[in-house]
Amino acid sequence: MTELQPQPQPSEAELSRRAFRQTRKRKSTLIAFISTLLFAAAVWFGLISTPGWSRVSQSFFDWPTAVASLPRVLEGLLLNLRVLVFAVIGVLFFGLLLAVLRTLRNPIFFPLRLFARVYVDFFRGLPLIIVLYLVGFGIPGLRLEWLGRIPAEVLGTVALTMTYSAYVAEVFRAGIESIHPSQRLAARSLGLSYGKTMRLVVLPQAIRRVAPPLMNDFVALQKDVGLISILGAIDAVRGAQIEVAKFANFTPYVVAGLLFVLLAIPTVRFADRISAKLASREQAGSTL
């Protein structure tokens, strides 16, 4: 058999097709550019022609204030990041635990199963801000001397973990249920126990499958760490609030907001990437 060789010289017809595609592509780029420009201009003029624009621009987009407030806001953001790291670890652990508890069928585990179920229903319904208040002011209110004084950021982390574990548990549970029952049967008929089947066969596949929605929940968590400020933790939001009071100008809030967005971009991109990668793998799957 002769190997197919790449053609050394494209034909006349192909050359003209390529030229046509080239011009068409350039034309599309140009149109997209002009259209974006016009759109941005329309939004901009729409904004500055509002009667209050000059006052808003002064009190929300003041450059000197932005620069002056940045150090404190950044310092606060570090606290948000620390809280985020602990919350993510806690949420992964408790979310998975709750999900697995809900799958147990043995009657001896009935109370655990019931607990997991009630917990998930309860905390998915309860607004995060109420959980924050209850944990943030309730736990210290118990006056447990041996606990000492718990820092606000720790209480905030606990509250975030409690709420997000409920959401993430549901995501994990959906993943567990999406694994074809044959996989479980195949594992059991190889002699693997229920626990090993779960740990070695079901969970690894389930976690891969739910990685995209899971990342989505973590993007939401990433911005909700800003809510710990209501418990008095000096995070980015609280830092901005202090700067706002100092300068009598709202620009620090905008600064904090932009920083949160910047922080979210890598996570969001990462989530998109793994979703795409998983999707291409899932297509083939283990089907015959």
Binding site: H180, S182, Q183, L185, A186, A187, R188, S189, L190, G191, L192, L200, V201, P204, Q205, R208, G285, S286, T287, L288
Partner: peptide, 26 residues
């Protein structure tokens, strides 16, 4: 079940494991 093996029509292999690991798992 450790003494009785069973193979089904389809979906037998574990998708997250290599062929080698599928066999070595049990």
């Amino acid at each position: 079940r450790k003494q009785v093996g069973m193979v089904f029509q389809a979906y037998n292999l574990f998708a997250h494991l290599s062929i080698l690991d599928n066999i070595t798992l049990a």
